[in-house]
Nucleic acid binder design. Structure first.
Lengths: 164, 164
DNA sequence: GTTATTGCAAATGATTTGCACAAGG
DNA sequence: CCTTGTGCAAATCATTTGCAATAAC
C-alpha cells in the first residue's frame, strides 16, 4: 500500500474523530495490496489470511469507510453484487469494459469520453460529480479466430461467466 | 401498450415454445403502460391492482422473460436494487443522469457519446454490445438559487434520497 | 474513563426456488 | 393429455444491525 493512501486514510479518520484500529489497517492493506477488483467476501478471505481476527461485519464497515473517504469506489459489473475498485486513485476517471465471452474486465481511460459526458451534463443543467460507464462487449478474437485465450483460462479456472 | 411490443412478445414466446398466459399479458401491460422506471416490487403493486392474481414470483419470472426478449432493460441507478427501464424500445441508446440532490433521473440520448464509446471499444479489440452510462450530478439550480423544485417535491412525497 | 469499534449472531430485504395444483396448446 | 406456468411459502445470498465485550485516545 502506497504511503499517501495511508496518510489520506489517517487524515480522514482523524478528521471524523474516528479511531485507528488494527482491523482497519489490515483491511486497508488488503484492499490496496493489489490493483484487482474484489467483492466484500473475497476481501474478507484475503484479509483473514493476514490478520487473525477480522469479521465480515468489520470488512463491510471498513469498506464503507474507505468509500466515504474517497479512496475506494463501488462499481457495478452487472453480476448482482457490489464490486470494489481500488484503482481510482491512480486512474481517477477510468471506465470498465466487460467481455461477456470470458468475463474479463478491461479498465480504460479516455479523456474524450470524460469531457463529452461532462459537457452533456452541464447542457442539461447539472453539475457533474461522477460518471460510471460500463461497456459490455464480445471478444473480437473469439469471433474471428474461433478462440479467445481469456475464455479458455476462465473456463479452466471455473470462473463464473456472467449473471448469477 | 404499443401493438408492436405485443407482437414482439408473442413472437418471442412462440419461438421459445412458451405459453401465453393471462399473468404474462397483465404484467407486460403494466410494464409498458407508462414510460416510468420501476422496481420489481413497484410493478407487483401496479399489476396487483389490475389483475386479480399475480404473485411476486410470477412478476420476477416475467421480468426475466421481458429482459431476455430484449423488450425491457435492467438499469443500475446506484440504489442497491434492480430498476427496470421500458424506454429502450423508443430510445435504444439512452443514458441516465441521477441528481443526487433530489433523486430525479433524467434520460438523455447523445449520438456522440454512443459513437465515441463504440470507437473506444473497437480500438480495444472488442465488439460493442451495449453500454450503460450513469452520470451522478448535483442540480445547478439548487446551487445557484438555493432551491430546486424537484428536491422540494421529493421531500414532500417522502421519497428516499439516495442509497438505502 | 469515555466513546468508538468489534465480533457474533440474528435480522433484513431483494430475489429465487421446490413443489403441488392449475391451465395452455 | 402432456408440459409449462403459477402461487405459496421456504430458501438464498449479500449486506446490515443490535448488543455486550473490547480497545482507542
Amino acid at each position: 500500500m502506497d504511503a499517501s493512501v495511508q496518510t489520506r486514510l489517517d487524515d480522514f479518520i482523524r478528521h471524523k474523530k474516528l479511531r485507528r484500529t488494527a482491523q482497519r489497517d489490515a483491511i486497508a492493506k488488503a484492499v490496496f495490496s493489489k490493483d484487482e477488483h474484489f467483492t466484500a467476501d473475497e476481501l474478507y478471505e484475503r484479509a483473514s489470511k493476514t490478520a487473525a481476527n477480522t469479521s465480515r461485519a468489520t470488512v463491510y464497515r471498513t469498506l464503507g469507510l474507505l468509500v466515504e473517504a474517497g479512496l475506494l469506489r463501488e462499481i457495478d459489473l452487472g453480476d448482482n453484487q457490489t464490486t470494489y475498485d481500488p484503482n481510482f486513485l491512480s486512474k481517477p476517471a477510468h471506465n470498465h469494459l466487460v467481455c461477456i465471452d470470458c468475463g474479463r474486465v478491461v479498465e480504460f481511460e479516455d479523456a474524450h469520453i470524460a469531457l463529452l459526458n461532462d459537457c452533456v451534463t452541464r447542457r442539461l443543467g447539472f453539475r457533474p460529480l461522477r460518471q460510471s460507464l460500463r461497456i459490455e462487449a464480445t471478444c473480437e478474437q473469439l469471433r474471428t479466430k474461433g478462440r479467445c485465450p481469456n475464455l479458455i483460462a476462465a473456463r479452466l479456472s471455473g470462473k463464473r461467466l456472467r449473471k448469477k
